[in-house]
Design a protein around this nucleic acid. Sequence first.
DNA 1: TCTGGGGTCCTAGGACCC
DNA 2: TCTGGGGTCCTAGGACCC
Length: 422
Amino acid sequence: MHLCNMYALVDCNNFYASCERIFKPELIGKPIVVLSNNDGCVIARSNEAKPYVPMGAVAFKYREVFKKNNIYVFSSNYALYADMSNRVMRILNQFTPEIEIYSIDEAFLNFTGLETLNLEQYSLQIIKKVNQWTKIPVSIGIAPTKALTKIANKIAKKFPNRTKNTYTIDNEEKRIKALKWTKIEDVWGIGRQFSKKLFLLNVKTAYDFTLLSDSFVQKEFSIVGLRLKRELEGKSVLKLEKTENKKNIATTRSFKNDIIEYNQIKERITTFACSCAEKLRKQNSYCNSLTVFIYTNNFKNKQKQYRKSVHLKLPFATNSNITLSKFAVKGLQTIFKNGYAFKKAGVILHDIHLKTHKQLNLFENENPKHEKLMQIMDKINHKLGEHKIKLASQNLEKTWIMKQEKLSNKYTTSWNELLTVK
DNA sequence: TCTGGGGTCCTAGGACCC
DNA sequence: TCTGGGGTCCTAGGACCC
């Protein structure tokens, strides 16, 4: 194991549930679950709720369980979670110059150059500061490779009392012990399919996996598997990645009720395209192609099924609501079929480039008025809150409000919903 | 009553060219 | 009429992540 570079993985504990608790301290120590869009299924649980509710549980089926065990239920409040995430990440950034924001609740830190410090003490400081400033509890795993920090983090979480929420793998003995303790299906990068395959080979732990030959791993699990093996062996091959602009941008939704009519789907697709366009402008980019898809409800197997997607190349790079929704609807027309009950649809943008790389098309170009128009639209929407200005083809009555019965306030991002102190 | 949403990377195979 | 090999580019789909 080479200890010349050390990494840390900082992971917020039960992030969404922890966010909900910040402004309701009376819920500390109480079971909480957070639901997906449309209050469909459980996507986060506090530790106290975990024994009663599995991840992904369908909410309505668990209504009795929630009630019986006094479990507090929240609709997801992404505005709050995103803002809290930003706050946590800003604090982490103070502890090391190099950080990779891996997800809304996780970041890898590069501890290289900090060898003179006691890294475990250092991470205790991080935990303390994040907690003081945001009330979010975090766990930290430290190791010479990213894959091993994931495992160290899991150990820290599993034994909070013994580890004080931070665990370090910094010698062979600890590495082997940790790998033998880690079930193969819990390894970062080993999902359902790979687990199944490995189980047949009698590979049950991360340690067993490292005993396979390189050539076999490469053959069966491609270069991805081989890299993972290296990482578990303590040889770092995955470096921190710069948080660059998105390469794909998607807006997709399941509908609360099935949609049968073309015009209703068309309105949804228009709105999704506009939402994508907005995200695109936020990162100052343009896209050159897009995908539109529509699905019937996959879970209702008695129902007539239809799932289709279409990929469209655009004649010129654009980030205009008008252009993108026009082409998205064009795509929809080619795949829509009467007589089906649609449950889900979406728009995905690809071929994304920065403003400076925008290529001019010889024959066909964007109406130059769009750029200015979009700027004004973004400005007004930003100022007045959610989507006061829309395209005429979108539904101005906003009939598509999600089912969100248990939504908490946007305490940190909306002036109207600040916490009132008595 | 009804099952989330948004990403990344890799590979195989087809189209096309010489 | 039959038969090549090698290379590139692109895309769909499958695996994974949170």
